[in-house]
């Protein structure tokens, strides 16, 4: 069976497949991976390559972190925040960046502009994270 493939140029998040001669059309919605998994090994590069950064520190044992995860993911997929890089860092496994950011509790958020920390906050409220992002954009 032959498959034709055409990329929908109107929306880069969709892939349209055509089955040749049968006029079937399948649309696959590709979710943008807006949350970047970062570690001690690559966080410096990510900070150097992105002007505006929000870091979410979490741990597998942290209940509040698990409950916040989908809310932060939605923020990262919001087009109005497309000029902010969202990094996801496991604090338990990455002591270097954890200590650099001054993690004191979890979940913990840090905003960075041009490699410099603007603000930090140990919060379980998504409104607090939104406020940090807005402040970051104005900095």
């Amino acid at each position: 069976m032959n498959f034709g493939k055409k990329q929908n140029l109107l929306n880069h998040n969709h892939l349209i497949l055509f089955l040749n001669n049968n006029h079937y059309q399948l649309t696959i919605n590709i979710i943008k991976m807006a949350l970047i998994q970062a570690t001690d090994n690559n966080y410096k590069d990510l900070l150097a390559n992105n002007q505006n950064v929000l870091i979410k520190f979490y741990a597998d044992w942290c209940g509040s972190c698990k409950l916040m995860a989908p809310k932060v993911r939605r923020l990262s997929e919001d087009e109005s925040h497309s000029n902010v890089a969202f990094l996801d860092i496991n604090a338990e496994q990455n002591p270097e960046v954890r200590k650099w950011a001054g993690v004191s509790n979890l979940p913990f958020f840090a905003t960075i502009k041009n490699g410099n920390i603007i603000a930090t906050n140990a919060t379980s409220k998504i409104e607090g994270v939104e406020a940090m992002i807005n402040e970051l954009k104005l900095a």
């Binding site: 597998d60 044992w61 942290c62 209940g63 509040s64 972190c65 698990k66 409950l67 916040m68 379980s124």
Partner: peptide, 14 residues
Amino acid sequence: DEGEQLTHITGAIW
């Protein structure tokens, strides 16, 4: 809150 409850459950499971 729910976050702390979930942490306690996670701890017990672990």
